[in-house]
Write a protein that binds this DNA or RNA. Sequence first.
DNA 1: GTTCGTTGCCTTTTT
DNA 2: GGCAACGAAC
Length: 677
Amino acid sequence: MARIYNLNSVGGEGGSPAIDFDAELNPQQLAAVKAPPGPALVIAGAGSGKTRTLTYRVAYLLQNGIQAQNILLLTFTNKAAREMIERVAALVPVDTSTLWSGTFHSIGNRILRRHADRLGMARQFSIMDREDQKELMNSVVKDSGLDVKALKFPKAQLLSDMFSMARNTGVNLRDYIADNYSYFEQFSDEIVKMRDAYQDKKLTTNCMDFDDLLIKTLSLLREHDDLRDLYQHQFEFVLVDEYQDTNMIQSDMIDLLAGKHGNLMVVGDDAQSIYSWRGADFRNILNFPEQYPGTNVYKIETNYRSVPEILTLANSAIRSNTEQFSKELAPFRSDQETLPALVMLSNTNTQAAFVVQRIQELQEEGVEPQEIAVLYRAHYQAMEVQMELTRQGVDFNITSGLRFFEQAHVKDVATFMKFVANRADEVAFKRMVRMLPGIGDKSADKLWMQWLSCEGSQKEKSDGFSKYMLDFVVPPKGKKDWMQLAYTLDELIDVDGELQPPSMMITSIVEGMYADYMRAQFSNYENRKMDIEQLDNFSSGFENVEEFLTQLSLLAGTDTDIKGGRQKKEQDSNVVCLSSVHQAKGLEWKVVFVIWMAEGMFPNGRVLEEDLDDSGLEEERRLFYVAVTRAMDELYLTYPLIWQNAHSGQVLQQPSRFLDEIPSEQMEEWQVGSGWD
DNA sequence: GTTCGTTGCCTTTTT
DNA sequence: GGCAACGAAC
C-alpha cells in the first residue's frame, strides 16, 4: 500500500471543521465508515442508512488526506451519485468536483472518450439507446436477406436482448440460445451471424450501445498495460453502491479498477437484488468475502426508516426466500397504533378511487403531498390512478416508462445533432429524413446509399451538407423539404466546419424545420414545444454537442434531471409520486400505496411462466420487499377483485401469494363499503 | 412501388 | 398506447 493511511486523525487540519462522526452515525455505520484499508463488504438492510454510510465514508477519506481524484464512487443511477456528492460537499470543505463518481456507464464512457484512439475509433461515437439499437438491428436483419417472416425468426428487439444478456453474463451465445430459447436453436447459425453483422455495423456507423460502454472499457484496460496501470494507480479507494445489482461485466470492471490498491468497499443488500433480468447476479455479493480474502464484513441491521409494524411485515414478506444472508431487520422506531392496511377493492376503478380519496384525506390530516407515493409492478398499472388523480385535481409526478429523452419529439431534435456530429450514424440519418413528407423506409435507404457514396459522408469531412445533398434523387413530394433540411444542416456548422454549440443548433433545427413538423404532426404541439425549450435550457450548459448528446443518453432521465430549472424542480418535489417499484429503489416516503397486489400482476405472470427453479419468483418477492420497505409510517396494500380488461372483458383476480405469506395479524383488513362504487 | 392511415391485438422491470 | 399487418391512395 503506497499511502500512509491514518485511521485516527480526523479532520481539524488546516482549519477545516471536523465532522463529529461519532455523534452523527450509529455504531454499526461508524464501524463501516472507519473501515481500515482493504476489501470491505457492507451488508445494509433496507432503511438502514446505506447512502448515509457511503457518504460519510467518502467524507472520512477526504478528511484523512485522500485526494478527491483518487476516489472512485460507482452507483446505478446518476441521481444517486449526484446526491451523495452534494452531501459530501456539504460535509467536507474539499473540492469534490474532481472525484470520480457516476454510473458504470458514465465512467466507462469517460474512460473510452479519453482513449478512443487506442480502440481505433473516432472520439465522436454515438451512444445508442434501446430504440436505436432496434433500428440498427432491423437494418442488419434486412441486409442479411433472410426471409424472417417465413422462418418466424426472432424479432430485432428480442435479438438485441439475447445478445445483451449473453454478453453481460459472459455466456457463449449458442449456449445461451440453447438454454433459454431452445425453440430458436435451429437458427443458432443465423443468429450468430446476425450478432457478428450487428457488431460490424456498430463499427462502421461509429456507434456504441450501452453494453459496449462497459465491455469496451474492460477490454481497453485489459489490453493496454499503461492505461490499466494509470487507472489502477489512480483509484486508491473504490466504493460501489447497490453491489447486489452488478452483473459479471460490472464486477469485472470493479475488480480491475480496484486491482492495485485493493481498497474496495461494496455496499448492498442481497434482499434487494432486483435486476437479474439484465444480468445482475446477487451471488456477486454473497461470494464477495471468498473472492476477496480478508474482507471485513459490516452488517447494518437496524432500520431507521419504518415503524415496527411495517418492518415486521417486511420481514415476513422476504422470509420465504431461500438464498440470502440471514438477517432480520430490527426497528429503531417505536410502536405505533396502526397496522399496515390490506384493502380489497371491487375493481380497478374503485382501487383508483380508494387510493386517491385516501391521499386527499391524508393531505387534510397534514401529510405533505411529496411524502406520499403510489408504487406498482408495471407502468401500465398506474393508468387508472393517474386518471383519477387528474379528475380530482391532485398534482402528481410520474416516473414514466418513457424518459424525457426517449419521447419522440425530443429524440427527433437530437437526431439532427447526432447526425451532424457523426456523419456515419445511419440510424440518425434515416430517422431524420423519414420526417420529411413522402419519404418512408425505402426512400430513406436510397438516400442513405447516396449519402454514403458522396464525399460529404467521410468521417473527417467537416464542410457543408447542401453542396452534396441538393444533388440527390428525392421523391417529388419531399423535394422542397429536402432542400430545407440540407440548408438547416448547413447552419449547424460554422464557416470553418466546426460544430455549433448545442443551444444554437437546437434553435436552428426548430426554426428551420422542426416547429413546422411538430405543428403538423402532434395535437399537443404547445406541450411539446415547451419540452424542446426545456431541452434548449438544458443544452445551454454544454459547449460541445458530443458532451451534450452523451449526457442525454446516459442520464437516468427522470423529468427532473432535465427539466431541472429550479422552479420546475420545486414544483415537482411538492407533489404525490407515482413510480414503478424498480425506480423507487433507494427512496422513501411517509405513506406508500402498493397497488395491483394480485396474482399474475405482482408477482408478474410472465416471470412465473418460464420460471423453472423459482429464481424468478424469488426476485419478484425481493421486489415486493423493496416496495414495502419504502414506507416510513403508513403502508397500504391494495388489489382489485375484477380487472376490466379491454380485450378479454372482466377478469377475476386472485390476491397475490405474497399477501398469503404475511400472517394475517400483521395487517388490518379494510372493508371498503359500497360508497366506493 | 412506396407511403401512410386504419384496424386489431397485447401490455415487465431499465443503465 | 404501441406495434404489426393490411389496404387505399399517391
